[in-house]
């Protein structure tokens, strides 16, 4: 085993990875949004403030659009170098240039305020719009794919430039009495891969190389209105009113993943 590399404020990279699992952010009087508890160490003078802090009103108006999600985020500001990591998962930074990217909420660690964070219409996902850098974690390295592609729900990390995400079911699995029985009971054998997410159109799809999901962060509630996915208001003629959003979601809970994946 080689001797460990010893880092000090001079040798730490600026806005780059220290190793696959640790990312270093350099602050020069600037600000970064980060998810609570992802900072592991810092040099210099950096303040961490909850987003409810009054001074951030203007910043929030331009860069943060998830009102009820705010308690999971903090603003780091000051000067120095800060190390970010998340449960020893792979960490990578991505640059957006006047683009947009939608990512699973638990995977996003931090982003520059030049990006705007919004809730995605797809529940459990967040969309970043604008120009800037953000840091995201994944279970294993991230693979970039071009649509058209069908992906396993558990391997999906996010997508950029708006391909159309939709569900895809294998036809034979879905049709007929026997198909229905199989899906209900599992008798007759299921491969576990009958359901995928399908992406078509121009863009990029981000996949992680395992099917282990990262714990999901609550993205905040959406207005209770008919027609808003996950909004909790039963749409007219909706089969099971009251099931959506019935239980208040706790932070870190997997939420309604199961239902979303049609399990």
């Amino acid at each position: 085993m080689s001797a460990p590399v010893i880092h000090d404020p001079m040798t730490l990279p600026s806005d780059d990875n220290v190793n696959s699992y640790t990312f270093c952010v350099e602050l020069k009087g600037s600000q970064w949004f980060l998810q609570k508890g992802k900072m592991i160490a810092y040099y210099g003078r950096i303040d961490f403030n909850g987003i409810g802090h009054g001074r951030f009103d203007r910043l929030l108006r331009t860069s943060f659009h998830s009102p009820l999600h705010a308690s999971d985020w903090v603003v780091a500001e000051g000067s120095g170098k800060m190390l970010l990591a998340d449960r020893a998962f792979d960490v990578n930074s991505y640059d957006l240039e006047d683009g947009n990217l939608t990512i699973r909420s638990g995977n996003l660690l931090a982003y520059q305020p030049s990006l705007a964070l919004k809730q995605s219409i797809v529940p459990g996902f967040l969309t970043l719009i604008g120009t800037g850098k953000f840091v995201a974690a994944s279970n294993g390295p991230v693979v970039f794919m071009e649509p058209p592609i069908r992906v396993d729900p558990q391997a999906l990390v996010g997508w950029a430039d708006c391909p159309s995400p939709c569900h895809h079911y294998d036809h034979g699995y879905m049709t007929g009495v026997m198909g229905g029985l199989r899906s209900l009971t599992g008798i007759g054998g299921t491969s576990g891969e009958e359901h995928q997410f399908e992406f078509v159109g121009a863009g990029t799809v981000l996949l992680q190389s395992t099917e282990t999901l990262m714990a999901e962060q609550a993205t905040g509630a959406v207005p209770h209105e008919p027609g808003v996915p996950g909004g909790g208001a039963p749409a007219p003629g909706h089969g099971h009113p009251g099931q959506q959003g019935a239980a208040p979601r706790l932070p870190g809970q997997l939420g309604d993943l199961q239902r979303r994946f049609g399990l």
Partner: peptide, 11 residues
């Protein structure tokens, strides 16, 4: 350590 440790020098 859980994941490779980062060694940081303090002066």
């Amino acid at each position: 350590s859980d994941g490779p440790a980062v060694v940081l020098r303090v002066t």
